[in-house]
Design a protein around this nucleic acid. Structure first.
Length: 569
RNA sequence: CGGGGUGUAGCUCAGGUGGUAGAGCACUUGCUUCGGGAGCAAGGGGCCGGAAGUUCGAGUCUUCUCACUCCGACCA
């Protein structure tokens, strides 16, 4: 491609609505353009990089035995009504009506249509297993689109669905996808980690997320340096400290302390001259209409996912102020486990069991109790891990300290089980002629998000540094003067030889100053740069690799070799 | 959904107390330049997000709306 003919506009300035490097660079390098919040057009240069990611995904899916097809994005309401998700998705689903008033949506995820398609064409165990996939646009009306295509409202996803006769079959299908995902992210050069994840609204018996480590990631990942334990913060657990045993320590007498006008734990601790870790906070939650008290150490955060799972909850919120006041008999801020006015569950994090002579709210406005001890002063209804793991907590598998980092979720694989096959009657006949629901798995990769993650990982102050596999063009030839026959002759010669070799190559034939071309080449991140200039007469060019390294003077033939296969450089 | 911020040229932004629209970059033309986003000169480009109101007169003041954005909550 000749740059002079290319539909490309690069920007010197950082667009004011782009926060993170990948988003800024995708706009500045002219890869994409915003059309509306969370909705983007891909420009030719961006699309080429996008297709490269897509093709890696496609090749690995095909290699793993999955078969590609494509479903519509516009889908009738009925199939989502059948699974109950028409209502469950709520305002996140883009909905529309046809001229006759029939309801449709833009597909947010495609378990239902895939399940329906398989139900209609597969009847026998002999036709199973099968794994199908598509690479297609998804639509979710996110409350808060962010970071360009990292969290968009229209985005491309590779979604795959496996159908098996039994759990053992699902394990095989799941492992094949797991392996394919590793191959994909390896080929894309991403630094990723596979973590155990909460299954969330998808349901099912287990799931794992593929996380690219990144400071801009929206998820917190908990992992162990000592073993292979890794989990999303939503799911991560730790080994609790040993519970204190009454009688093995000196349990002091409970005292009621007047603590007027304290609003925060910090104020309270200042008032009582104590550390937050010597306080157990009690928070009231409304879980599907039921009020529950939850206790964790004062310096910990409650993990609402774990709490919700404990009650198999659909909706979980902090309790309303008047519920709190009715149940504790005090203003908000003084809740505790002792003398609650109503019989409610008191869920206690196991870490609290290790605390002795600690402080709690007194269920009386402006008062706290000190020297409280579990077992003597109150009894938990449930003891369960309901807090977020923190740096340094003990690994539940090997006992070493856990670390926490942030990550971008680029892939997610689920063992779904029979949730959708039962809802949509997707069954097969086994050898005995008995009807069984198929056992399903589903597997997603956010293609645009993966592309953004690649850029997030591979950039510097000058721009993008594409890994070779993703680079929209592998090499760029920069003639320093376009009116010099010797220079242009050699540049054109290299250009045609690279094209003949099947290398995607750019020739920057614009009548621009060399500095402009160098800046653009760095910004758009082409891996191999061949500058044709002063020594063109001797057949010598300058070679520079975008991912570092010095400029070297080589023969045109050598430069061509390296552009074809930079690993040799 | 709660709280904040911002909407003026393709991009980044300036436009006290109301008086009819600006800069830099980008774009067009010419000249000089030409190895890391050149200089000079001349140009083109605006429903000042939209609507209503106050006023002789609104980019500027008031109200309403829409969009974008940040923090939080939420999130297969």
């Amino acid at each position: 491609m000749r740059v002079s003919k290319m539909f490309l506009s690069t920007m010197r300035e950082v667009p004011n609505d782009a926060e993170i490097p990948s988003h800024q660079l995708m706009i500045r390098a002219g890869l994409m353009k915003k059309v509306a919040s969370g909705i983007y057009s891909f420009m030719p240069l961006g699309l080429k990089a996008f297709r490269n990611v897509e093709n890696v995904v496609r090749e690995e899916m095909d290699k793993a035995g999955a078969q590609e097809l494509i479903m519509p994005a516009v889908l009738p309401a009925e199939i989502y009504q059948a699974s109950g998700r028409w209502n469950k998705f709520g305002p996140e689903m883009f909905r529309l009506n046809d001229r006759g008033g029939r309801q449709f949506c833009l597909g947010p995820t495609h378990e239902e249509p895939f399940t329906e398609a398989v139900r209609d064409s597969i009847k026998s165990y002999k036709q199973l297993p099968v794994t199908l996939y598509q690479i297609q646009h998804k639509y979710r009306d996110e409350k808060r689109p962010r970071f360009g295509v990292m969290r968009a409202r229209e985005f491309v996803m590779k979604d795959a669905y496996s159908f098996d006769v039994d759990e053992a079959g699902l394990d095989v299908s799941y492992q094949a996808m797991y392996k394919a995902y590793c191959n994909i992210f390896d080929r894309l050069g991403l630094d990723y980690i596979v973590v155990d994840a909460d299954t969330g609204a998808m349901g099912g018996s287990g799931s794992q997320e593929f996380m690219v480590k990144s400071s801009v990631g929206e998820d917190a990942i908990c992992y162990c340096e000592g073993c292979n334990y890794a989990a999303n913060e939503e799911k991560a657990t730790c080994e609790p400290p040993k519970a204190a045993v009454l009688g093995e320590y000196e349990a002091l007498a409970v005292e009621k302390i007047h603590t007027p006008n304290v609003k925060t734990i910090e104020e309270l601790m200042g008032y009582m001259n104590a550390e937050p870790s010597s306080f157990a906070k009690t928070i009231l939650y409304n879980i599907d209409g039921r009020i529950v008290a939850v206790m964790v150490r004062g310096d910990r955060e409650i993990n609402e996912t774990k709490l919700g799972n404990l009650y198999d909850a659909v909706e979980i919120n902090l309790a309303a102020f008047d519920d709190v006041e009715r149940i504790t008999g005090a203003k908000v801020g003084f809740a505790g486990p002792i003398d609650l006015k109503e019989e409610i569950d008191v869920v206690v994090d196991p870490e609290v069991l290790a605390m002795t002579n600690f402080i709690v709210g007194a269920n009386e406005t402006d008062y706290h109790f000190k020297n409280v001890n579990v077992g003597r002063d109150f009894t938990p209804t449930i003891v369960k891990d309901v807090r977020n793991v923190v740096e340094g907590d003990i690994c539940p598998k090997c006992g070493k300290p856990l670390s926490i980092c942030r990550g971008v979720e680029v892939g997610h694989i689920f063992k779904l089980g029979t949730k959708y096959s039962e809802a949509l009657h997707c069954t097969y006949l086994d050898k005995d002629g008995k009807e069984n629901p198929m056992i399903m798995g589903c597997y997603g990769i956010g293609v645009g998000r993966t592309l953004a993650a690649v850029i997030e990982q591979y950039n510097d102050a000058d721009g993008i540094m594409w890994p070779y596999e993703v680079a929209p063009y592998k090499a760029i030839i920069i003639p320093t003067k376009t009116n010099d026959e010797t220079i242009m002759g050699l540049a054109e010669d290299i250009y045609s030889k690279l094209q003949a070799a099947g290398v995607e190559v750019l020739l920057d034939d614009r009548n621009e100053r060399p500095g402009v071309k160098f800046k653009d080449a760095d910004l758009i991140g082409i891996p191999v740069r061949i500058t044709v200039g002063r020594m063109a007469g001797e057949g010598i060019v300058e070679l520079k690799l975008r991912n570092g390294g010095e400029v070297s003077e080589v023969s045109a033939a050598e430069a061509i070799e390296i552009a074809i296969n930079p690993a040799k450089g």
